[in-house]
């Protein structure tokens, strides 16, 4: 019992993050008060559709937002350090070294005029103070680690000589150069083919086990995270709708949005041509977000109260909570009623 009660270290914890943009005289409320944490050595998946605020949330955490964005938070600590009190210079040192990020499109993230070797060696020289010789050696070692064959030869090549999957491996190698405590991967496999996607996901998983770092995986695809993540946070309309362990989200989802999302895709390995259950309507605009639950408009359980106020979180276990006025049981009951009437 003692063991299970002992809390793991939280490498990152954030409370009530609010990010707004000012553009063309309008204000976009991209993230509207999200709290989340990442334990050390875990893979957290942040799942959401386009415009849900998932990428903005992570960029806010890293301090990578442009000047027209305003980020507020009650608390933001990374590895025991308070990030809110840091200036740009301190943040810059921490990024790249202690937390690293990889992006969706591996082509635009690399400089086409520089060799792969100089990409890697620049990071090593800057953040780890290595000389040229040592940096070169280390660069070969990291390329090896991410599974790039004949790394010595590859160092002198340019990004265009690499395929999409290999470029993503290079980006992962760059991120690994400084042995970060946290790796944020923003849709790392969206631009890749399914066989290459499988390779990259396996690579991320084995690197996590090998190095013990934490990973935040941002994605729109629940299928991608099922085999990979320990916990999942589901975002919608700038809010965290539900979070829980991967098993909780897949097998006992509590929020109507999570449930709808799971029903909208064909079930794996079922030959049945069951009709899909789409979610009607579309995601709300975040320029003037609804005052109530952002999902209310598309939710089959919504009542008047839902459109008026943003609900409170209901806690289901030490790991699972959902932002809905109804509990999971109430929803099951309502679902039964809908079916028997319809």
């Amino acid at each position: 019992m003692e063991e299970t009660l002992k809390k793991k270290d939280k490498i990152l914890s954030a409370a009530d993050i609010r990010t707004t943009f000012h553009t063309h005289g309008r204000t976009v409320q991209a993230v509207r008060g999200v709290s989340l944490y990442v334990e050390s050595g875990e893979i957290l998946a942040v799942v959401g559709e386009s415009g849900s605020g998932k990428s903005v949330l992570m960029k806010s955490v890293m301090g990578l937002m442009p000047d027209n964005a305003e980020v507020k938070a009650d608390q933001l600590t990374f590895a025991g350090q308070d990030m809110l009190g840091m200036d740009q210079e301190q943040l810059r040192k921490m990024r790249g070294k202690e937390m690293a990020m990889i992006f969706q499109d591996p082509m635009t993230a690399l400089n086409p005029l520089k060799t792969i070797g100089s990409h890697l060696m620049e990071v090593l020289k800057r953040h780890r103070g290595m000389d040229k010789e040592a940096a070169k050696k280390e660069a070969v070692a990291v390329l090896n680690q991410v599974g790039i064959p004949s790394p010595e030869k590859r160092l002198g090549q340019y990004p265009h000589e690499f395929s999409g999957g290999m470029r993503q491996r290079v980006l992962i190698a760059m991120a690994l150069c400084c042995k970060p405590k946290l790796l944020i991967a923003d849709e790392p496999t969206t631009a890749l083919d399914v066989t290459i996607q499988a390779q990259i996901l396996d690579l991320l998983k084995s690197l996590q086990e090998e190095t013990g770092m934490s990973i935040i995986l941002i994605t729109h695809d629940l299928g991608v995270v099922a085999s990979l993540s320990h916990r999942i946070a589901v975002m919608y309309g700038g809010l965290l709708m539900e979070e829980g362990t991967t098993e909780e989200i897949f097998y006992t989802p509590k929020h109507p949005y999570t449930r709808a999302l799971l029903h909208a895709v064909p079930k794996p390995h079922s030959g049945s041509k069951e009709r899909l259950e789409p979610i009607p309507g579309m995601a709300p605009s975040l320029i003037d977000p609804p005052s109530g639950c952002p999902f209310a408009e598309r939710c089959k359980f919504a009542c008047e109260r839902c459109t008026k106020e943003i609900p409170q979180y209901r806690t289901y276990s030490t790991t699972q909570r959902a932002l809905c006025i109804y509990s999971g049981e109430e929803l099951d009951h309502k679902e039964g009623e809908v079916e028997s009437h319809g």
Partner: peptide, 20 residues
């Protein structure tokens, strides 16, 4: 190709063997 499909089910996903 088929074994590379990410399965939206954690139990199935952990059992499935991939042909890499």
């Amino acid at each position: 190709l088929l074994s590379a499909i990410p399965l939206a089910d954690p139990k199935l996903a952990s059992q499935s063997k991939r042909v890499m």
